[in-house]
Design a protein around this nucleic acid. Structure first.
Lengths: 200, 200
DNA sequence: GTAGAAACGAAACTTTAGGTTTCGTATGTC
DNA sequence: GACATACGAAACCTAAAGTTTCGTTTCTAC
């Protein structure tokens, strides 16, 4: 009972963290990430662009990688919050087309840099799975399960498999870049894969 | 005509490059890459492990990344040289199963590190496409075209699409690691995708 | 066999960048 | 007004990539 207050106003003592500085840092980091790439961004450069001291960076983040990671997700937040509507196969098709659109956008390119940049950092990879991948898959799972329930997909459909077969090829071209990733490609995937999961 | 000799014995003057040093460097680089990861390997560490001077490294390679890149491909050369035999759908199924096997192997894990490690280096990405991707796709293209010719696949099959739909999901799990990449998964992909490309 | 050309090892060196420390000041709560 | 904590500025530390120097070795040409 004596901890009830912490739920309502757990405001710590002392000077509060500057929300302005936090936003400036993440914004500066995102822009540098976009303009120069993951490895080329300097930590002092981020601080200078944000009009902030280097010390402030490392008061809140453990490493440059973590800053860039957070900067990416801060930016993607509104983009990834688009709600899913409709029923049957329509939302599934729309989801894949939107995913393709996102991956080729500027934000998608930045995310590719972050994705490859953090690949060897176990903690950040885990965070990526939790904060991005798992959330996205959850949406797709729900869509697919709905379509199964309405008999637009076979009752034996494995949602995990279908997600990977639909999204994997997009991811493949996104990172490897052996061929263009456009809406035509996304449609081709849908048109060839979905029939294999439909009841006859 | 006066350049004819260069084709037969273009041996330059001076002391020849040490083939032994070259191999020791690439071998040391591969082992360090395997044991410590792409970013954690130091250039002086490679030199020391190989019993070679740092200067020798940079006489032949432009950067540490290039050394690790070459070290990876030197090691993969024999693995990737396995010939393809058989006709019909068998070689296609076998290819996908072997690809899955390779990706989860130690060598596959090392290659993932190299792949992500060089992502922002334009020259090395291009080299990766030419030295690895294009070669692998060529093999798959031939297999698929054979299967089309023998009417085991629809005549309208787009080889590029089929390659991406079969391999993309493997690649997806390989790099993103949201779910295990094993033979069972590879079989599931084959069993669900191939029927969609078969003539009825 | 000797001259010239180029690679080699050893080791000092330069530069850049990630991250830390210090300290005086600013901003909040009690 | 006391206390706690964040802030900026700037010097600082350390590690690592890549370079330079130089004496030595290994080859070709004559």
């Amino acid at each position: 009972m004596k901890e009830l207050k912490t739920k309502i106003a757990p405001r710590p003592r002392g000077r509060p963290r500057s929300e302005r500085a936090r936003q400036e840092i993440l914004e500066a980091a995102y822009k540098l990430l976009r303009d120069k790439g993951f490895n080329a961004v300097g930590s002092h450069e981020i601080a200078q662009t944000a009009g902030v001291s280097s010390a402030t960076l490392y008061r809140w983040w453990k490493s440059k990688e973590e800053i860039l990671f957070d900067a990416c997700f801060e930016r993607m937040k509104p983009i990834l919050a688009i709600p899913e509507t409709g029923s049957g196969l329509t939302p599934l098709r729309r989801y894949v087309l939107r995913a393709a659109e996102f991956l080729v956008s500027e934000e998608g390119a930045v995310m590719a840099r972050v994705f490859t940049g953090i690949h060897e950092d176990k903690r950040l990879r885990q965070a990526f799975l939790e904060r991005y991948v798992e959330h996205r898959r959850q949406i797709q799972r729900r869509i697919i399960e709905d379509a199964i329930a309405s008999c637009e997909l076979k009752s034996t459909t494995d949602p995990e498999l279908l997600i990977d077969v639909l999204t994997g090829p997009l991811f493949f071209r996104w990172l490897q870049g052996h061929a263009p990733l456009d809406k035509g490609f996304a449609k081709s995937i849908l048109d060839s894969v979905i029939p294999a999961f439909r009841p006859h």
